[in-house]
């Protein structure tokens, strides 16, 4: 029983990272129907930003986290401005291919500039383990889970309660009509990218602290898994992305704990296939018929 709870904790910590990443996918998809494959690499940028600020400018953890969110938000806006905005009215596949290109650019650019080696992330917070009824929980696991939940609630508030959030929802429903009622579409889309990328930046710093190892290709697999999480939850749906992230995290942990570790990635992709066949709109997604 304790093992079960221990694995649940492991799954939740892993899942909260996927959830934070999935939010970015789902928001960008919701607003411009683009799967931003470079999102996982923004997460890598966040981790590297945290690495450099903590090592060389001696930032504390909170400040490193917040500054990484700001820097990644800026990176997201810049990528949107230069790579996706010129293709706003191009066919969707063009933008998708561009996204893959941006992803390769970021991965190999960072490998070129800083080397492909794995680096150890500075441990600014000392790890303490708590023993709760036989289940070991570390302060970093609690921190990751707490920060992830806090950011998700904050995001939900921004989208539901602020004027910008209302603009985002309007653009995602119908961009042309939104423009007619006076919403600045470009600014709204930039804001969405900023918001999504800042979540990825936060995830990057958290993962650096948790695993103590970062490298330029670290965004690849988590990025794809977060994409699966977004699809499982219903792409375009914010609560769906959070739920999907946790589900994928727990699924991966469960597969490994029953001794099928070699198939853990396969299991995630199998879930993607099943969801696409059985419930293409995802758990929280609405099934909207497209006009032909």
């Amino acid at each position: 029983m304790t093992t079960l709870f221990q694995q649940l904790i492991n799954g939740l910590s892993l899942g909260s990272i996927y959830a934070l990443l999935a939010l970015g996918y789902t928001m960008v998809y919701g607003i411009i129907k683009l799967i931003n494959f470079a999102h996982g690499d923004i997460y890598m940028l966040g981790a590297f930003w945290g690495y450099y600020t903590i090592n060389f400018w001696h930032f504390n953890f909170i400040f490193a986290l917040l500054s990484a969110m700001v820097v990644c938000a800026a990176a997201g806006v810049i990528i949107e401005y230069f790579a996706y905005r010129p293709l706003r009215h191009a066919p969707r596949i063009t933008a998708l291919i561009t996204a893959i290109g941006v992803s390769y650019f970021l991965e190999n650019g960072m490998s070129y500039l800083y080397g492909a080696d794995t680096r150890n992330f500075p441990q600014v917070i000392k790890q303490v383990n708590y023993n709760l009824w036989g289940v070991r929980v570390s302060n970093i696991q609690i921190l990751i889970l707490g920060t992830a939940c806090l950011l998700m609630i904050l995001l939900q508030l921004i989208i539901k309660k602020t004027k910008m959030g209302r603009a985002m929802r309007a653009v995602s429903v119908d961009p042309d009509a939104a423009e007619l009622v006076g919403i600045n579409i470009n600014r709204t889309i930039s804001f969405t990218f900023a918001l999504g990328s800042s979540m990825a930046g936060a995830a990057g710093v958290l993962i650096g602290l948790y695993y103590n190892s970062i490298d330029p290709l670290m965004g690849m697999t988590p990025g794809i898994k977060a994409f699966v999480a977004a699809v499982v939850g219903g792409i375009g749906s914010i609560p769906g992305a959070s739920l999907g992230g946790f589900l994928i995290g727990i699924l991966e942990t469960a597969v490994q704990s029953v001794g099928l570790s070699a198939y853990k990635d396969a299991a995630v992709y199998l879930v993607l296939i099943i969801i696409l066949l059985v419930l293409p709109a995802g758990i929280f997604g609405k099934n909207v018929k497209e006009k032909v």
């Binding site: 093992t3 221990q6 694995q7 492991n10 799954g11 910590s13 892993l14 993962i207 695993y211 190892s213 490298d215 290709l217 670290m218 690849m220 697999t221 991966e252 942990t253 469960a254 490994q256 704990s257 029953v258 001794g259 570790s261 070699a262 990635d265």
Partner: peptide, 17 residues
């Protein structure tokens, strides 16, 4: 016997078992 692949970062589940 369990396996992982290069680039994996989370081994908590395997190690717990």
């Amino acid at each position: 016997t369990q396996y992982f692949s290069a680039g994996d970062k989370d081994f908590n589940a395997i190690l717990t078992s």
